[in-house]
Amino acid sequence: MEEQDFIGPRDVLGHAERAGAKAQTTLVRPSAPGEVTCFFGTRVTVPTAWEPADADLLIVPGGGDQLIKSPDVLRNLVRAQQAGVIVAGVCTGVMVLSAAGLTAGRPCTTHHLAKAELAAQGGTVIDARVVDDGNLVTAGGVTSGIDLALWMITRECGPSIALSVESIMEYEQRGVVWRSS
């Protein structure tokens, strides 16, 4: 996985929890706890195996090309969404969601270098940093994962907590969030 794709959103959600939001983050792996070597060599110990319905929000970071090749992961992504989990993708993590069939015919976005492939797989590609289609939320490349997490805090917890997190992180959300409703 790409380091910034997961650590940026995790920082946002962690700061939101400290600011009073009912937010708790957990790193998960599809199969079992263990170590993950990230795109640039960072090693991360992941303490928990993923259970598809054990979250309100699941964020799939980019760089996980092997996930696309796992029928169990793809089936579990569908199960998670059917169980009421908001499934989100950052960067090429959206391509994992596409492989699971979650973006077909739906507004979505991904890293600019993968947009043509996402469209070829049936996604309705929107040129935006963050696209919110209810139980499917997608973000463009790398740093847009921070915008996705700030949007989710705004949407689920209110703008005051999101503004507090922006202040703590000295980061302002970029771009307009494209919403389907």
Score class of each variant (00 low, 15 high):
residue 130 V to L: 07
residue 109 T to N: 04
residue 61 P to Y: 06
residue 138 T to W: 11
residue 108 C to V: 12
residue 21 A to D: 06
residue 98 S to F: 04
residue 72 D to I: 11
residue 127 D to T: 11
residue 49 A to H: 12
residue 72 D to N: 10
residue 133 D to N: 15
residue 179 R to T: 09
residue 141 G to I: 04
residue 165 V to E: 01
residue 150 L to I: 13
residue 164 S to W: 13
residue 161 I to L: 07
residue 68 I to A: 11
residue 42 T to S: 11
residue 39 F to E: 00
residue 100 A to L: 01
residue 125 V to T: 07
residue 81 Q to G: 06
residue 118 L to V: 06
residue 89 G to H: 08
residue 35 E to T: 15
residue 147 D to R: 01
residue 154 T to D: 08
residue 103 T to K: 14
residue 144 S to H: 08
residue 136 L to S: 01
residue 24 Q to I: 03
residue 113 L to Q: 10
residue 168 I to L: 11
residue 162 A to L: 04
residue 50 W to M: 00
residue 14 G to Q: 10
residue 32 A to C: 08
residue 13 L to D: 01
residue 173 Q to M: 15
residue 153 I to R: 00
residue 5 D to P: 01
residue 42 T to N: 12
residue 148 L to R: 06
residue 1 M to G: 01
residue 181 S to Q: 12
residue 30 P to G: 04
residue 35 E to V: 13
residue 31 S to D: 12
residue 90 V to L: 06
residue 97 L to K: 04
residue 47 P to T: 07
residue 82 Q to Y: 04
residue 142 V to M: 13
residue 148 L to M: 08
residue 129 R to L: 13
residue 65 D to K: 15
residue 179 R to L: 00
residue 99 A to Y: 02
residue 88 A to L: 12
residue 125 V to Q: 02
residue 8 G to D: 02
residue 145 G to Y: 00
residue 123 G to K: 03
residue 177 V to K: 02
residue 81 Q to D: 03
residue 139 A to W: 14
residue 173 Q to L: 09
residue 19 A to Q: 05
residue 141 G to T: 05
residue 134 G to I: 07
residue 88 A to P: 08
